[in-house]
Design a protein around this nucleic acid. Structure first.
Lengths: 199, 199, 199, 199
DNA sequence: GATGAATGAGGTTTCATTCAT
DNA sequence: CATGAATGAAACCTCATTCAT
């Protein structure tokens, strides 16, 4: 493994374990088995490391999400795939996600910020993917919603909130996998005009 | 205003504007118009200030939430009240909430932590309130859900995620007030399948 | 007990337990059950407290030493009384002595210093007392030494060194009571005209 | 001279002149001609500097003491060599010794302490050396004592006390070199059984 | 490409002391 | 007599970053 990779790996582990601020560049160098100065040969700054971590996982996230969504035909199935994928991803990339949820928000305090732009770009792609799922669902009748864009944001917010809870909440969270699926299905289900039928 | 209040007020503003780490105790002292040492006369440490900010807003949040929920009879109305209240609170206490969403997670990196305990205690209360709303809704037939506890956590996660998006996301978020209400109503509505099954 | 006495008592205990520098005036106030400011009403400064502690125990030390020495007639018995007394005193006033041995030397770093003068005055008295014992011993034939002054200083140094070892040394020190007595007796014994015996 | 050595040298001088507490790390940096931070690059803390000073002089002390003792055959001569050596050392290493006598005791206030361990280790070696001198003396008939261990501690206490007086006492101390030698010789001299011989 | 000694700005915290009440 | 809120100087230490090698 190249020195650069060793640095990224060590940083990812230490950031996840102890937090960005609680990890010094010296800690990273030691954990990576490189000299302190080497970090600044490969990265412009400490922030540059976290940027690289986010860039890579954002890219992976979007690519894999697209792939998963593409495996299904019906809109509602795609939505369910999105939910499932997030669940899986929060396990396979828990370290990166932890850093993203715990240490990234703090970066939003400064106005201008490459990190912010990176996350915005990634977020926009995710929103678009969810919107497409919903559109497909409306077209095939498996989904009903009055406002696609809003629903996409709500789903995105829900996913974000749940990941946060799972990875960071001091509360004890039960396993919500199935319940979330049900919650969303019902929220997006075509109005079953049911009662109408009654009359 | 007492010096202690001045410190809290200044800290709240500065933390919200620039972030906890980007705000030095000297900045706070200057903004509050007190000597630097005065901060440490009133608070054990810099962390003590953020603890007090969270303690106060957590207390306010729970009290007001209880009050709002108490104004309605039917379960579904109570749930809607919860959603509305969070919307209102994220405007009236945006600074405190911003600090909570942006700077608190980082505190979760350290294992033992009074801040964590405080937030856990508050979170537990909130979950309980939502659960009661759902129970009421089930009793009066305005809500249907297979698992009260899970639904409460999902709603809580959704609320958290949406607040996060509103206050911190680099994405442009549309006004979701009405849509969220609708989303939840549908997700919790009693299954009207009655008739479906009929035919 | 008056507040002033309470302060002295608390300070003596805390200084002995934790050291002068490791004890803050606030600690003392709390332990004494008085307000922080009260300390500075009764004492000019933190140093003033330690000064008072030394003044009192120095006074007691000299008075009791004189008394003990006065109980014996022969010089060598007086010397033995001095040794015994120091042993007893280092138990009855261990806290004060500990402070004297541990925290006082550091005060000697500054040139001008009331504490220094106080200790010098006390020390001079002690030296004089020991010299008188030796003189008596020479007169009555129970002691032999070529230089009274020097012997007094040596005995004083020995006493100081032993107290230091007993109260502060990280080494494990055996009980030296009897051995020290013997050591000094032999060192001061009139030359037994050994060679005489030889013929 | 390397920066690290410059720091040690400056610190030794300043600690000796003004005391450990009265010397700030900034003072040391200035005196050493290095940046403030450089101190903390080479030493973990301010205490780390005094630790290194003690470590070095303790090592030197023991090595030289052993050498001096080794130059003589008879026990009593070895003991005299010990006394002479301490006299010489307290002149050649007066700064280090001053720090040891003045500022080290205060460190003993805290229970766990690397400094304490270091001094204990050194002290144990010194005691052992003195014991060996006494043993030799008993074997060759130049020394008589009923308890080697105790005598070693007494001699050690005497040496410590005398050094303390010479370097720190506010009293005016006469030159005791010869007298101390005589004092110890007499205390340790084989009982000249002289009078016994009389019988 | 890689190193590691050196930097120095900046941060939090401590604490003896003051003073208005 | 006594208080305790307030002070501000000064202390130690951290750490991202630089740069000569």
């Amino acid at each position: 493994m190249s020195r650069k990779e060793a640095i990224i790996e060590a940083a990812t582990r230490l950031f996840a374990e102890n937090g960005f601020h609680q990890t010094s560049t010296l800690d990273i160098a030691e954990a990576a088995g490189v000299a302190h100065g080497t970090i600044f040969y490969h990265f412009k700054s400490k922030e540059g490391i976290i940027y690289e971590i986010f860039r890579r996982s954002g890219q992976t996230y979007v690519a894999e999400l697209k792939y998963e969504v593409g495996r299904y035909q019906k809109g509602i199935e795609k939505i369910e795939a999105v939910l499932r994928f997030n669940n899986a991803f929060s396990r396979s990339h828990s370290k990166q996600l932890l850093i993203f949820l715990r240490d990234f928000p703090e970066k939003l305090a400064s106005k201008e910020n490459k990190l912010k732009d990176l996350v915005k770009a990634t977020g926009d792609q995710v929103i678009k993917i969810i919107e497409q799922c919903l559109e497909t669902g409306i077209a095939d009748g498996s989904v009903d919603t009055s406002n696609i864009k809003n629903s996409a944001h709500i789903l995105n917010g829900l996913i974000f909130g749940l990941m946060h809870m799972n990875l960071l909440s001091p509360l004890e969270i039960p396993d919500l996998t199935y319940s979330v699926d049900e919650f969303c299905r019902r929220a997006l289900a075509p109005v079953s005009l049911p009662t109408n039928g009654l009359k």
